[in-house]
């Protein structure tokens, strides 16, 4: 933090020396003199609250192991944050909630059977490399949780794509490995029923099962005013619109737009990762561009890429362009294009 330019607070003796009543209590600071009650911890903890339904759904569908993965990721993220802040002699702000969010989001992108050591490694990478090496909160370019997941995808590609059936699906043997709806779509051209996708009765990573749980959290955040509706709507809308083109051409080969936005990480990504304040644009036009192009890229990867899922890479890809997008989508200053009289 900048020590030389703290908000000035000057205590002064009364000018006239008359010792005016209460004068010794006077504080001088620059306007405005009262501020909104919002704070970073308040925002972050609200996001954590909004993730509760998705976490609850993951525990419901995948059992206590899901909870264990979430706790491990959150703990590892907070510990890494603490260690870096301690090492860099920065104020310890582990409890501002941002590391908790990263931990939860990373856990929600992991397969239920993912090993604990891998989850720890991913968390250390997400916070250490993804966030603290850039300078900590506010300075990271990429979404830390997604960066952690990308790292695990590169280091443990097999473990990262070994999926379990949710326990709500009746099975003779417990914990049978299964293909995700997106993998079935890609490699077998089979489309899962929309109702199963909506409620979460499909295999996948912890948080990409239940659409309804994520929607509840997302809409709660929208209600609280902590996410900009342009981002999730732009992202999901562009995924739907772009995938609709292929669906119209060949509905047997390409899934419907509804399948695209309900399957995989689309919902989780759209409501909790595209909307990440730090790594999304600050201008209205920039937010549209970021969300819409991101949605298109996700669909392209899903349909024509080597991987069944493209949400993670589409968001990371767009993250990289945020500074550029901000720079070129500045709003026009009030009255900027008009001519004066005379």
């Amino acid at each position: 933090m900048d020590k030389t330019l703290e908000k000035t607070e000057i205590k002064t003796a009364p000018e006239g020396g008359e010792g005016a009543a209460g004068a010794e209590r006077l504080i001088v600071s620059s306007s405005p003199h009262f501020l909104d009650a919002e704070s970073i911890p308040k925002i972050m903890h609200t996001v954590v609250m909004a993730l509760v339904p998705a976490m609850a759904a993951s525990v419901y569908f995948f059992g206590w192991r899901a909870l264990l993965l979430i706790l491990v990721c959150v703990g590892a993220c907070m510990l890494t944050e603490w260690a870096f802040q301690k090492y860099r002699k920065k104020p310890i702000k582990v409890y501002d909630g941002s590391a908790i969010i990263t931990g939860i989001l990373l856990a929600l992108t992991l397969p239920p059977g993912f090993p604990i050591f891998g989850a720890i490694l991913g968390s250390v990478f997400a916070i250490g490399i993804g966030k603290q090496l850039f300078g900590g909160i506010g300075f990271n370019i990429f979404n830390p949780a997604l960066l952690g997941r990308a790292f695990l995808m590169a280091t443990y590609p097999v473990l990262m794509t070994t999926w379990l059936e949710p326990r709500t699906v009746a099975k003779a043997v417990d914990a049978v490995s299964a293909a995700t709806p997106l993998a079935m779509m890609k490699f077998e051209a089979k489309f899962a029923p929309l109702a199963d996708l909506f409620f979460g009765n499909v295999s996948g990573s912890l948080g990409e099962t239940s659409v309804v749980a994520i929607l509840i959290g997302g809409l709660y955040l929208r209600y609280k005013g902590y996410i900009n509706w342009k981002l999730p709507l732009g992202y999901l809308g562009s995924m739907a619109a772009f995938s609709a083109i292929f669906w119209f051409v060949n509905p047997a080969k390409y899934p419907s737009p509804a399948f695209h936005i309900f399957a995989g990480g689309a919902m989780l990504g759209a409501w909790f990762m595209v909307t990440d304040m730090v790594t999304s644009p600050t201008t209205a036009l920039g937010q549209w561009i970021f969300a819409i192009v991101g949605g298109i890229i996700a669909v392209i990867i899903r349909l024509f890429g080597g991987l069944p899922e493209g949400v993670m890479y589409s968001i990371l890809f767009m993250n990289a362009f945020v500074p550029l997008i901000n720079k070129h989508t500045r709003p026009r200053v009030f009255g900027g294009s008009l001519k004066a009289q005379g």
Partner: peptide, 25 residues
Amino acid sequence: SFKSKPYDPCIKCARCVEACPMALM
């Protein structure tokens, strides 16, 4: 109600951009 606290890093939440009546950043 006024006391200035130590400030945090900017998290690019865009609230200031959305509030500025002059459409500045």
